[in-house]
């Protein structure tokens, strides 16, 4: 999928540019908060803040080897996580060496956001409510961390202009203009055939360019048993909730020889919420059989969380969003 990387000097407004570009393009923003939230589930310890875009100079300190090993594990996990994500999502990656990780990757647009020190000082003083001396020190530290991070891990100079498609000075252009330029550059990449088409959605739809298909958390497009399930998946996609369709079958009853005689596969699993969802849009008189299975599931697998959406609830959902029910 497409990747836009944003490298930034501290206080240049690069974070805001990344966020706004992600929103305008409908891309997923990979920033610190997003990484913190996701790497936990990859078994990386919570204290990786010490490595995140940091200048690493602990040589000769006690416990150096152990810390170095943790750092190596963190970086490996982070890079695998980002590469995996880029397979199934369009991304805006803020910092973290994205411009090197996706160097020579055709569907990538590399942007550097800079601003003169004076303007950055003003922004940092205002945003963080700091006096000028403290802000100046913070800018110096942060820039050094990012510069060293890129040098130590990838061996690149972050001001090496060969790494970037675009270098934007937010003092000369302003944030909104910078965002517009990055979005336009992405459109040019679309026209060049490097980027998957993304904007604007309505006109793509009018031109019939958009293939309406939903994808689960692993990028697969499952065949749904019922149109209501596809509609539900679309709704989850819209609100950026990851899902898997019928990923697991729970055995419920066995015969005397141990063969499974009754089993149940809930329609959806939401990995971030660790919950199964079963849509029951059948006629009420058929629901009792499913209810019986779900009761049994809860008895045998008490740790499994399952939410049942009955026909009435589902119609309420559609009504809320003003959608007509399909394919009963």
């Amino acid at each position: 999928m497409a990747v836009i990387t944003i490298s930034r000097q501290f206080g240049s407004g690069g974070e805001a540019v990344a966020r706004l570009v992600a929103e305008k393009m409908g891309y997923l923003l990979v920033n610190k908060a997003m990484i913190v939230e996701n790497l936990r589930s990859y078994g990386v310890e919570d204290d990786f803040d010490q490595f995140d875009e940091k200048n690493f100079s602990l040589i000769e300190q006690a416990g150096y080897r152990e810390i170095e090993e943790k750092r190596r594990h963190y970086l490996e996990t982070l890079h695998n996580f980002i590469y995996d994500l880029a397979i199934r999502e369009n991304l805006v990656i803020l910092g973290r060496g994205g411009q090197v990780l996706f160097k020579d990757f055709p569907p990538a647009l590399h942007v550097k956001i800079i601003a003169p020190l004076k303007g950055r000082l003003e922004l940092v003083c205002k945003s963080y409510e700091l006096d000028e001396a403290v802000a100046a020190r913070l800018i110096e530290e942060q820039d050094q961390d990012r510069r060293e991070y890129l040098r130590q891990i990838f061996g690149y100079n972050w001001l090496d202009l060969d790494l970037y498609h675009l270098v934007l000075n937010t003092e000369l252009f302003g944030l909104e203009e910078a965002v517009a330029l990055v979005v336009n550059a992405a459109r040019v990449k679309e026209e060049m055939g490097d980027f998957p088409l993304s904007l604007p959605e309505d006109s793509r739809q009018e031109q019939g360019l958009l293939i309406s298909q939903v994808h689960d958390a692993t990028g697969n497009a499952p065949s749904f048993a019922h149109p209501s399930e596809e509609e539900f998946a679309r709704m989850l996609d819209f609100y950026q909730i990851k899902w898997l369709y019928e990923p697991k079958t729970f055995p419920l009853e066995w015969d005397s020889e141990g063969n499974i005689t009754v089993a149940f596969s809930p329609d959806f699993y939401l990995p971030e919420q660790d919950i199964y969802v079963e849509l029951t849009t059948q006629k009420q008189k058929l629901v009792w059989r499913k209810n019986k299975k779900i009761r049994r599931l809860r008895e045998i697998y008490p740790h499994v969380k399952i939410k049942i959406i009955y026909g009435r609830d589902y119609r309420g959902l559609l009504q809320k969003y003003g959608i007509e029910e399909k394919g009963e």
């Binding site: 959605e201 509609e231 709704m235 559609l318 003003g322 959608i323």
Partner: peptide
């Protein structure tokens, strides 16, 4: 969701 003529894309 559903506010557009056809429910597509993301929030």
């Amino acid at each position: 969701y559903g506010a557009t003529s056809y429910p597509l894309g993301i929030v």
